[in-house]
Design a protein around this nucleic acid. Structure first.
Length: 221
DNA sequence: CACCAGGCAAGTA
DNA sequence: TACTTGCATGGT
């Protein structure tokens, strides 16, 4: 059954890679900023951008809310796509200000599914960013899906290659205990696996900790 | 030099 | 609905 297989893969990854200590940020606000800035971007670049915000004392809701979008863009430049990301981050801050008075604790008390819908209505917040905020900033038991998840688990054969984000998310959430810690580590471990072994053009299947599940899966005929 | 990274929205057919 | 493209820096 899939529920056992999913858990077995998790255990192998955890045993092989260990705890991942996500999200690498100090506060809820920093996690939210990072979630926006890391869209299609290496985390090392996001760290530089957040470092700039820290140096300039902008890592508080009030300061960030006040700063002009074009000035914010300059500070987050190392994260790439800085003009559009500055706007998107501003959109999200505006949403949090108007709906929760800029208070992340208030936002955290909102019903999870309702909040997810609200976040998705913000221009610049898609499913992965919304779920990352829910899981890593607000400790909600929501499974985060990304390109690695889709690539790896469709290769294993337990996910269809044309499955949507929601399909994949449901699959994991229906076959695992809904536990924030488990979802936190599992997504982080999948990213680790994707980066180290399941790269697009340079797979390293020989050393992959779940090579039995991936590389020796019959291809169909 | 080419390719990729913890996406998303808008445009096109 | 199902592709395609713009967005941009920094590491390998």
């Amino acid at each position: 059954m899939n529920d056992k297989k999913i858990l077995r893969i998790y255990k192998k990854l955890y045993k092989s890679f260990g705890k991942q200590y996500w999200w690498p940020a100090k506060t809820k606000l920093e996690v939210i900023i990072g979630a926006m800035l890391t869209q299609n971007t290496a985390w090392s670049n996001v760290e530089k951008a957040i470092g700039n915000l820290r140096k300039n004392k902008k890592l508080s809701f009030k300061k960030l809310y006040k700063i002009k979008t074009d000035k914010l863009a300059v500070l987050i430049k190392p994260a790439g796509y800085f003009n559009i990301k500055a706007k998107r981050l501003k959109n999200l801050l505006e949403f949090i200000k108007s709906r929760y008075n800029g208070n992340l604790e208030n936002m955290q008390r909102e019903n999870t599914q309702a909040l997810r819908g609200q976040l998705l209505s913000v221009n610049g917040v898609g499913p992965e960013t919304a779920d990352s905020i829910l899981l890593y900033a607000l400790d909600k038991p929501v499974f985060v899906v990304d390109a690695y998840t889709k690539r790896i688990f469709s290769k294993i054969g337990i996910i269809s290659s044309n499955a949507t984000y929601e399909d994949i998310q449901e699959f994991f959430m229906n076959n695992l205990k809904r536990d924030t810690y488990l979802f936190n580590e599992y997504h982080a471990l999948i990213v680790k696996l994707g980066k180290d072994y399941c790269k697009k053009n340079r797979p390293n299947c020989k050393a992959c900790p779940i090579k039995e599940e991936i590389c020796s899966v019959p291809t169909g005929s």
